[in-house]
Design a protein around this nucleic acid. Structure first.
Lengths: 107, 107
DNA sequence: TCATTATGTAGCTATTTGGCTACAAATATA
DNA sequence: TATATTTGTAGCCAAATAGCTACATAATGA
């Protein structure tokens, strides 16, 4: 359980994506997170560990409880990777681009 | 090699992310894609197959050659999943869409 | 203090993954 | 037609993954 701990690998797992949605909506303790799943608690604990290692979550200790916070800046890395693709799915952009193309062709 | 063929699992692998960037920039044959990597051709072929199965790529046969095209709409699913998080990483913007708008304005 | 609670770790397992070589199938070309 | 090219498939393997149970550690609180 060591290598390939990047954000993309982290969000590949559906359970981890669910954890991220949960914690992003509200900071929670490890136990509170686990209580949202049928999966065994140590399994969720491992998922939380993976998310923490790649910095999508960070810990705040409070006595014996550990609160997990969502780190938006790390998730932003995914959005940044998507940017080069984004122009291709936006219809308005494609329309504009096509209009410009036609306009230039006429000149 | 069957289950879990969703977009998130597909983009988890660095080689597949590189293939997507390549093909998004230009439609290419399987051989042309493979020639960009040190990895053995059948290995790349398998990556291409995974990307095709989850519809990030689609095929266009031309004789014995197969051209692979990028499907932006499928990638968009990732951006849509990111939306609930987007407002958290930049105060100035409330939607991923706005960030994309800004990106395109720069171009 | 002693039991309870919150959390993480160890160690095991079955399955999936990503890689390779060897081979097959189909199209193009000399 | 015989050969070369393009691509995919089969089958193997080592490593990684996600899951579990059992145990360890540390803080609360009766």
């Amino acid at each position: 359980m060591n290598l390939r701990r990047d954000v993309f690998q982290a969000i590949a797992d559906p359970t981890r994506r669910a954890i991220l949605l949960l914690v992003a909506s509200q900071t929670m303790t490890a136990g509170a997170i686990a209580s949202n799943f049928d999966t065994a608690r140590p399994t969720i604990s491992k998922h939380i560990q993976i998310l923490t290692e790649c910095e999508l979550l960070y810990q705040e200790q409070s006595g014996r409880e550990i609160y997990y916070h969502f780190n938006p800046n790390k998730m932003k890395e995914v959005a940044e990777w998507l940017m080069p693709f984004a122009k291709m799915w936006d219809e308005r952009f494609n329309k504009l681009e096509n209009i410009m193309k036609k306009y230039k062709a006429k000149k």
